[in-house]
Computed example of a mutant assay.
Amino acid sequence: MSFSRFVALGDSFTEGVGDVDPDRPNGVRGWADRVAEVLAAGSDDFRYANLAIRGRKLRPILAEQLEPAIALEPDLVTIYAGANDIMRPSVDIDGLLVDYDAAVGRLAATGARVVLFTAFDPGGFPIFGTMRGRFATYNELVREIAEKHGTTLVDYWRMREYRDPGMWAEDRMHMSSAGHQRMAMAVLDAIGVDHELVELDLPPAPQLSKAERRAANLDWAKAHAAPWVKRRLTGKSSGDALDPRYPTLGPVSPAASRSPGRARRTS
């Protein structure tokens, strides 16, 4: 398979949060950039746009990104939306997914290859594990939408390698560079594009005593969980002051490519 016009829609997952790169817009790289770099290597006229902004809920994503994406006439579109809604105190998942269904239908009607994602399985994770039922409901509706419109589905829920803490950034809410690399591989595999990406090295698993683990969890709660909860209670978003990283189709710089690394855990 080959593609020449790739447009990515969504929230922090697609923007690339957790995959730090100070030389790129908004200071992140992400799986979508990594996919774009592979696609660009196989096409002389490849162009890429990333409209995703961290913190966006499903309906704002559709309101702000759907029409611009369609106007760019892509032949490959990825969209992931809804996780920020699910984590609110209350949510009408069925109502949200009715809107999502209509939006995916519009994208599919353009003739582009459309890629959807289920949400990650938060079972066993502090705080987010209590929402596992919500995520499961969301995922089943997304699978139904994917089948209805003949889109490609990347089933994040079933990717058990993300149980490893090394696949997550320091905030424990976004994928690390290794997590984004793995997701890029999953997307490329799903759309049938050959690639040479391999999983990145993971940091050594920390060996902590119970007291050290409690202290680490407290530090995390103060630095990341509390600000996250405050933003949700006050209606603010980490992306309020940000613009899309790549709002129009443009070339992917060869200088952006990185060496793939090896699939092993460091010691």
Rank of each mutant, 00 (worst) to 15 (best):
Val154His: 03
Ala169Ser: 15
Arg160Gly: 12
Arg143Tyr: 01
Arg134Asp: 03
Glu140Val: 08
Arg113Met: 11
Ala119Val: 07
Thr137Ser: 12
Arg113Ile: 06
Tyr138Gly: 00
Ala136Gly: 04
Phe135Met: 14
Ala108Pro: 09
Phe120Leu: 13
Lys148Glu: 14
Tyr156Pro: 00
Gly166Trp: 08
Phe125Gly: 02
Arg132Ile: 13
Phe120Arg: 10
Phe128Asn: 01
Trp168Cys: 11
Thr118Tyr: 04
Phe125Tyr: 12
Thr151Glu: 04
Gly166Phe: 08
Lys148His: 15
Pro165Arg: 10
Arg160Ser: 15
Tyr162Asn: 09
Ala119Asn: 14
Glu144Gln: 14
Ile145His: 02
Met167Gln: 14
Val154Lys: 06
Tyr162Met: 14
His149Arg: 08
Ala108Tyr: 07
Ala109Gly: 10
Glu144Trp: 08
Asp121Tyr: 03
Gly111Ile: 09
Gly133Ser: 13
Leu116His: 06
Thr152Arg: 14
Gly111Phe: 04
Ala119His: 11
Gly123His: 09
Phe128His: 03
Val142Gln: 02
Glu140Thr: 11
Ile127Ala: 12
Ala146Glu: 10
Ala136Thr: 09
Glu147Cys: 03
Lys148Val: 04
Phe120Cys: 09
Asp121Glu: 04
Thr137Cys: 07
Arg158Ala: 15
Trp157Gly: 01
Arg158Val: 01
Tyr156Phe: 15
Val115Thr: 01
Pro122Cys: 09
Met167Thr: 10
Ala146Tyr: 08
Trp168Leu: 10
Gly166Met: 09
Ala169Cys: 06
Gly166Asn: 09
Thr152Val: 15
Gly124Val: 05
Val114Thr: 11
Thr152Met: 08
Thr151His: 05
Thr137Trp: 00
Asp155Ala: 04
Phe117Arg: 01
Leu116Gly: 06
Val114Cys: 07
Thr151Leu: 06
Gly150Gln: 10
Arg160Met: 10
Val115Pro: 02
Val154Ile: 13
Gly111Ser: 07
Pro126Gln: 07
Gly129Tyr: 05
Gly150Thr: 08
Phe135His: 02
Phe135Thr: 12
Thr152Gly: 04
Phe120Pro: 00
Arg160Gln: 13
Met159Glu: 15
Arg132Glu: 13
Met131Gly: 00
Met159Lys: 13
Arg134Gly: 12
Ala109Tyr: 05
Pro126Met: 06
Thr118Cys: 03
Gly133Lys: 05
Trp157Asn: 00
Asp121Lys: 03
Gly166Gln: 10
Arg160Asp: 15
Thr137Pro: 00
Ile127Tyr: 15
Val114Asn: 03
Pro122His: 07
Val114Lys: 03
Thr137Tyr: 01
Trp168Asp: 11
Ala112Glu: 03
Glu140Arg: 15
Thr152Ser: 12
Tyr162Arg: 09
Arg143Asp: 00
Arg163Pro: 00
Thr110Ile: 07
Phe120Val: 13
Gly129Pro: 00
Gly150His: 10
Glu140Ser: 06
Ala136Asn: 06
Thr118Arg: 01
Gly166Glu: 09
Thr130His: 02
Ile145Lys: 01
Tyr162Thr: 14
Gly150Tyr: 09
Arg163Ile: 05
Glu147His: 10
Trp168Ile: 12
